[in-house]
Design a protein around this nucleic acid. Structure first.
Length: 438
RNA sequence: GCCCUGGUGGUGUAGCCGGGCCUAUCAUACAGGACUGUCACUCCUGUGACUCGGGUUCAAAUCCCGACCAGGGCGCCA
């Protein structure tokens, strides 16, 4: 085994081409595959950006180089200093003839799964050996896509005058209602992992921050076991003052639309690898009211009473009826959280919305209830105790502007962008009902 | 949490219905050998597996029960 020493990579494999014939380069990466043909050895070297062929003809390289080449196995980590040779017979039209090879680390064998994708592996096996799974170009592509998605989302927020914030993930209250929280011990007290930055975002409206966004983890202790649920997820959240639910929907459209454009333009290679034909959907996205949704779902043979949330069957028929992204607006007040502002014209309804992609809910938001007495009443209505919201409610008593916002599930958004059927595919190290490692 | 399906070498599979010719199939990986243009290299040789526990039977990978694990569906998801 050799040390890196003073060697540094001069090129990623993708940066080398036939026009560099004769140039000396240093490349580093993993042995993707190796074919030993007696006195001739071919290595496909893989780095983050791609692969390149290394050719080792016994007659034309130092004996030591040939011997090292012969000793290599799959996924060994090597560095090669060598000459670029343009050659039509090589994949990509060029290859490297090594002057010197350094073996930086050996890989044990057999490997727990096959990164070259000749033999498929179950998702469970892949997640158990995720670092190896992630060496597969297709999988790497998905996470490059994710990185660019986050960049596009951030860019849009900054361009629109939002401040990026971080709110606590360790919280005291288990009384927000709704979802189950993960309890944990906090010195001599009990604490919980935050299910959403909701209450903090709103307090920042009282702080006069006007427009904030946060990209961070949320934790839900539900025992769900589906392709679209995780117990730890990343939420893209925003909140804006002096705005109503229509402003919030427009902002959400901008974020989604800009991300589609950005990915389409900057991730051609990744989309191709993933075999995704990303459609740019013009804005505004269609808006359905909850009332319309109830009609559509019932007309298509799935029973749905007014006042019920969409069942999975309901989502499916709706997803068949609607193409791409669409909003559902004007929800019944009783099935939305207490911080949603009721409609003035009909107190049974509220100013909440969901953003759907086909049959998948990817975001939800609303104009928030900024009127203190009405908010207290709503908390009671939901069977919750206003006293446990004291530090939150305080913020509404000394000048809280009208405001609206939403939360977009980053991992679900990735399912749409990357064409994935299982949300676990979109997360490096997913946390679900049974998986806590790696 | 409920329902359905499944668990066979490192990985992915065939065999299971109709128990015995299974000393368990194939691919890939791995080890050794031959090979100077491979690109899923080819060829020869070799190594390696029936999730666990109980039961039925002369006989269980195969049938039955339970546990564990996985996949899918549903529920839950302010």
């Amino acid at each position: 085994m050799d040390s890196l020493g003073s060697w540094r990579r001069t090129h990623y494999t993708s940066e080398i081409n036939g026009e560099m014939d004769g140039e000396e380069v240093t490349v580093m990466g993993w042995v993707n595959s190796i074919r030993k043909l007696g006195k001739l050895i071919f290595i496909i070297l893989r780095d983050r950006e791609g692969t390149i062929q290394i050719v080792i003809p016994k007659q034309k390289v130092p004996e030591e180089v040939f011997n090292i080449g012969k000793s290599l196995g799959r996924e060994d980590v090597i560095a090669i200093r060598g000459k670029v040779v343009a050659n039509e017979k090589a994949p990509g039209g060029c290859e490297i003839v090594p002057l010197e090879i350094r073996v930086l680390n050996r890989a044990e064998s057999p490997l727990p799964l096959d990164p070259s994708e000749k033999v498929p592996a179950d998702l469970d096996t892949r997640l158990d050996n995720r670092f190896l799974d992630l060496r597969r170009p297709k999988i790497t592509a998905l996470f490059k896509l994710r990185s660019e998605m986050l960049r596009a989302v951030r860019d849009t927020f900054y361009r629109e005058g939002f401040i990026e914030v971080n709110t606590p993930k360790l919280v005291a209250s288990a009384t927000e209602g709704g979802t189950e929280l993960f309890p944990l011990s906090y010195f001599e007290r009990e604490a919980f992992l935050s299910q959403s930055p909701q209450l903090y975002k709103q307090m920042l409206m009282a702080a006069g921050f006007e427009r904030v966004f946060e990209i961070g983890p949320i934790f839900r202790a539900e025992e769900h076991n589906t392709r679209r649920h995780l117990n730890e997820a990343i939420s893209i959240d925003c909140e804006m003052s002096f705005a109503d639910e229509r402003d919030a929907m427009e902002m959400l459209e901008k974020v989604v639309y800009n991300t589609l454009l950005h990915i389409k333009e900057h991730c051609r290679r990744e989309l191709e690898l993933l075999d995704v034909d990303l459609k740019i959907q013009d804005i505004p996205f269609p808006r359905l009211t909850y009332d319309e949704v109830v009609d559509i779902v019932n007309t298509r043979g799935v029973e749905m009473e007014w006042g019920e949330d969409l069942s999975r069957a309901g989502e499916k028929v709706l997803g068949e009826y609607m193409e791409g992204f669409y909003f559902i607006t004007k929800w019944p007040r009783d099935i939305r959280p207490f911080y949603t502002l009721p409609c003035e014209e009909d107190p049974k309804l509220c100013k909440a919305f969901d953003l759907m992609y086909k049959d998948l809910e990817i975001a939800s938001g609303a104009q928030r209830n900024h009127i203190y007495p009405l908010l207290v009443e709503s908390i009671k209505r939901m069977g919750l105790n206003p006293e446990s919201f004291e530090s939150y409610l305080q913020a509404f008593r000394y000048g809280m502007p009208p405001h609206a916002g939403w939360g977009l599930g980053a991992d679900r958004f990735m399912m749409v962008l990357g064409g994935q059927k299982n949300i676990r595919e979109c997360v490096l190290f997913p946390r679900d009902r049974h998986r806590l490692t790696p």
